Every structure is written in C-alpha cells, then in structure tokens.
Computed example of a mutant assay.
Amino acid sequence: MKKWISTALLFLVSITVFGQETMTIQVEIANRNGDVVYLKEGRKNVLEIKVDDKGIFKSTFPIKEGMYQFFDGNEYAQLFLKPGYDLKMSLDAKKFDETLKFSGKGANENTFLAEQSLIDQKMDFDSLLAMEETNFNKAIEEKRNADTGRLDKAALDTNFATLFKNTLEANLSGLKQYHTQIMANKKLNNTAAPDFVYENHKGGKTSLESMKGKYVYIDVWATWCGPCRAEIPFLKELEKNYHGKNIEFVSVSVDVEKDYEKWKTFVTEKALGGTQLYADKNWNSDFIKAFGINSIPRFILIDPKGVVIDADAARPSNPKLKTQLDGLVK
C-alpha cells in the first residue's frame, strides 16, 4: 500500500519558496542497489548523486522547499527538503524503510515521515475498504485524528505541518472515493452479467453468452497500461495451471481506435493466451459502462450461469485469486 499512499504526494502541489538557496544531503547506504541515487519531485528528476570512493552519496545543491522522493533503485522514501538543511541519512537497502535514519538539520521532519510510512504499511487497507460505510467513516476519522495528533505533538516546521495535513486529506479523500467504488461494485455481485459481442484477435466475434457453462475470469486492460502489463506473467501462469478446467480467461482491451493495430501487434508479439477481445467502443462500451470501469486493470469473475461472482475480483498476482478459483473450478 506504500505506493498507493504516495500517489497524492506525487501530484499534490508543494508549498515552495522559489530561489537558488542550497542545502546539503549526505547518504550512507549498506547493500545499496546502485552507484547513483535520485531525488525526484513528482515525475521530475531533481538531482542525481553518484557514490564517492568512500561509498557515500553527498551533494550540495539548489532546492525549493517542498516534498521530494529519494530513490535507491526501486526503493524510495518521502523527504521534506528546504534551503539551509544539512541532512544526513543512513539505511540498509535490504530493509529500506525499517532502517532509515536521519540526523542533522531537517532530521525531525524526515524522521516523522519515515515513521508515518511504517505506520501506514502496517494498516490493513483491504479490511478497511471492505467495511460498510458507517464503520469505514469512523475508521477514516480515527486515522485522521491519530496522524494529526502525532503531528501536533511533534512540533515540527510550520510549512511541513501544513503540507503534511494537506497530503493526509488528499490521501483520505482518495480512500473514500475508492471505497465508494468498491461498494458500488459489490452491488453488482449476484446479478446477471450483461452480454458483450467483441472482436476476437483470432478472428470473428465472441460473446459472453457463448461462454456460459464455464467460469469466466475477465481482465479489462490496455496496451498503454503499465500495471496491466505487469499482471500478464501472472495471468499466463494462471492459464497454464487451469488449462483444461472449466474456466475461460478473457482479456478485453479498451485501447482506443488509433491503437487498434498496436493491440493486434502486442497480443501477437507477447504471445498472450486465453481469449483476446477488443471492446467495440473502448471505455464507452456498454459492458464496460455497466461495471462502472473508469480505471484499469480491472478483473471480473462470472459463474457458469452468467451471474457475477465478483465485480472487482483479485488480480492474477494476488494469491487470494488462486485460493478462490481452487474452491470453484474443477
């Protein structure tokens, strides 16, 4: 959930002080992932620091006040930086979050962020999002009070406190929107799935109706979607494990018309298995709209009678899916 929690930080407009004032950062990393570390502001690279002959990353550089992300390979930490800081970091990349320590000017704010990250990682977000509305809202309010309470007791930089509270509210708002969508999806469970008739990559058209008598696991995706592509190896493994059993794996592309040929080529070059279909009106396809799909990947599980088992099924990479399918598919 760490990646999700960071989303608001990546796009939230930071409180900034413009100018060319500098700060210094020094980082010691045991078991480092590479010889270069990066500071990013959202998607923009702010700084690259190469390791010196003592194994230390150190740099003095111009900075504007705000939130940044420090990357060592794929591991990262949120940092609050501002002119005048002289920040020292140490960590073991094998236990990145658990070993992250700060000293020097700016240590207090960044220690707070590191501790908050560990707290968030311990939260059971799946259980939180599965709560009915009253309990969910109560849990959200408890988290807000706990996080702001810790902040108030810490007596940190005023601008940092404002930025943190804004980010917290953005994250909680995102959770509420996600919860609302999950609750809407649950209402579709145990209802008849609407039919579709889509172009099949192998030729002709294929309908959902034609697959009655089998369980159907539907992957709604697009060629441009990174998280969708990341699920492909896991989906292929599922197809292999359940080959010959009473289940059909169906991938429905919502690529727009200009990417139609890209879809055809991608399916061929990546040797995608299962049933590969192209939605007739991409996002405006009746089937896509019926399930309220506005983000991908999205997975749907339907029973042999055409009834929705799970309108927001687990991803192929989630072990919960195999457990569920083992209990259904013979």
Rank of each mutant, 00 (worst) to 15 (best):
T60W: 09
T158Q: 14
G213A: 06
K245Q: 07
S90N: 09
I140Y: 01
K305F: 06
L113Q: 00
C225N: 02
E28N: 15
L208Q: 02
D312N: 09
E231S: 03
N135Y: 15
N110C: 00
L9G: 11
R298V: 08
V254T: 02
L118Y: 09
Q121I: 11
K330M: 13
D53K: 14
F61A: 03
G84M: 06
E239I: 05
L235D: 04
P304L: 03
K240D: 04
E199P: 02
F102H: 02
V252I: 04
A161N: 09
M1L: 13
G204F: 02
I119E: 14
R298S: 10
N135A: 14
K88N: 14
V216C: 06
D124T: 04
G73W: 03
I63A: 01
W283Y: 03
P83W: 08
D86A: 08
L168R: 04
S103V: 08
E48A: 10
N185R: 15
K88M: 11
S90E: 10
Q324P: 05
D35R: 09
W221F: 02
A154V: 10
D53Q: 12
E248N: 06
L10R: 14
E98H: 09
I119R: 14
L81F: 06
L168E: 09
A146K: 15
L12K: 11
E109L: 04
D259H: 12
N159I: 08
Y178C: 15
G42L: 05
E261Q: 12
E48L: 08
I247L: 00
V254M: 01
E269K: 13
V254I: 02
N137Y: 09
N74M: 12
A161Y: 15
D219W: 04
T223I: 07
A184G: 11
Y260N: 07
G34S: 04
A170V: 10
A314S: 11
L208I: 10
L10W: 13
V307I: 12
E109H: 05
N145L: 13
G73H: 05
V46F: 03
M211R: 09
L100T: 00
A290R: 05
L10V: 13
Q276L: 03
S295G: 12
R315E: 12
K40F: 05
N137F: 02
F196E: 01
F112M: 09
N159H: 13
N31Y: 11
D152M: 14
V216W: 08
W224I: 05
V51H: 05
D120Y: 13
Q69H: 13
Y38M: 08
E115G: 10
V46Y: 00
D280N: 08
N135S: 15
K122F: 11
M67G: 11
T134M: 07
P316D: 01
G42S: 05
F70S: 00
K101T: 12
Y38I: 07
E109Q: 07
E21C: 15
L238K: 00
Q181A: 15
Y68R: 00
N171I: 06
D97K: 06
K187F: 04
L175D: 02
F18L: 13
S103N: 11
F287S: 00
I63H: 00
